[in-house]
Design a protein around this nucleic acid. Structure first.
Lengths: 175, 175
DNA sequence: TAGTGCATGTAATGCGTTACATGATTTC
DNA sequence: GAAATCATGTAACGCATTACATGCACTA
């Protein structure tokens, strides 16, 4: 089985006892999507591939007359997941339109260019609010590394807000 | 003309007097690719679309017998670029495999999980070295906002390195 | 004169999202 | 009984990369 980008999110979440495709999507959207998004169009086909490979197992678990499929990770799946975890690459891809704007902002009058820095700051401040709202008093009970990834989101947004404020001040001083 | 993701990189760089597709690719690879990548397969078709739209103009400027096309931005192009710059969205997409690993690292013995944090740190430290090498003593002469984007790259990597070190210490204390 | 760099371009492929179709169950 | 939620799935589309084809010019 040739792993793709979505393989590890799906396998990893099944290993965390997230058992249906629908649930996987829901959990992704409240957690890893900030650094690793996944859509139905990837999740459902991937569940099939993982089952064929023997990394997960399961099947029909209908809820009343409603179709439903529950999967669990197998021993082979656990091994595959651990092997991937041992990989040490740091693949990092970013697509940040606001930064691209900043790069070309010399085409704008100074005051408007500074407005872009401010808009960036405000954008991250809003995401920060959303992230903090996710924390309904239960984050400390998460496993330590799940908690670490959550922290990263918060810390990163805080850093961006502070960076924008610092740069805005610096550029104002110079002008 | 319906703008796509690559429209603004290409139009922006032409406005910075980067005139051929080949040069655009080269400049992208040493600058914006950290937050906005672009490949030949996008750049050349986009140059044609931009020309048809009247946002850039130019044509054959062969170098000896070698085919070559130089473009310049038009007044309409400058207007389109400024209009885009005024947009205030903060589109931000990240794909960070090392963070995904961290999220699932509870499946590993503690020492190995901490190794992932260290590997992340080292990865960013390496990028930092590469970014600093880009600075051949000439970065201060860049226009202020080009310089700002460059700074962002450096500052972000420094923050990541520091964040990893902080978290590693914190997790060691707790264990 | 061989190797590297300049230069343009496209076809194949893969990745990912969006939008839709379908239908049961739970909640108000 | 209407609306929201649970649940599975796929087809169409768009976005991006990779890899290749082509050929001239400069440099060692």
């Amino acid at each position: 089985m040739k792993p793709t980008a979505v393989t590890w999110v799906v396998l990893g979440l099944v290993s965390h006892d997230v058992r249906t495709g629908y649930d996987i999507k829901r959990v992704v959207d409240r957690s890893v999507r900030y650094f690793w998004a996944a859509s139905y169009g990837q999740i459902y086909p991937e569940l099939k591939r993982l089952e064929e490979a023997g990394w997960i197992a399961g099947g029909g678990a209908p809820h009343g007359g409603r179709e439903r499929r529950e999967y669990r990770i197998t021993a082979a799946g656990r091994k595959a997941l651990r092997d991937w975890l041992h990989g040490h690459e740091v693949r990092h891809e970013l697509r940040d339109e606001s930064l691209l704007r900043l790069f070309f902002a010399d085409a704008l009058p100074r005051a408007e260019a500074l407005g872009l820095v401010r808009a960036r700051r405000d954008g991250f401040a809003r995401v920060l609010t959303a992230l903090r709202a996710l924390d309904d008093g239960g984050r400390d009970r998460d496993p330590p590394f799940v908690n670490l990834a959550y922290r990263w989101g918060i810390d990163y947004c805080e850093w961006e807000v502070a960076w924008c404020e610092r740069q805005e001040r610096r550029l104002r001083r110079k002008a």
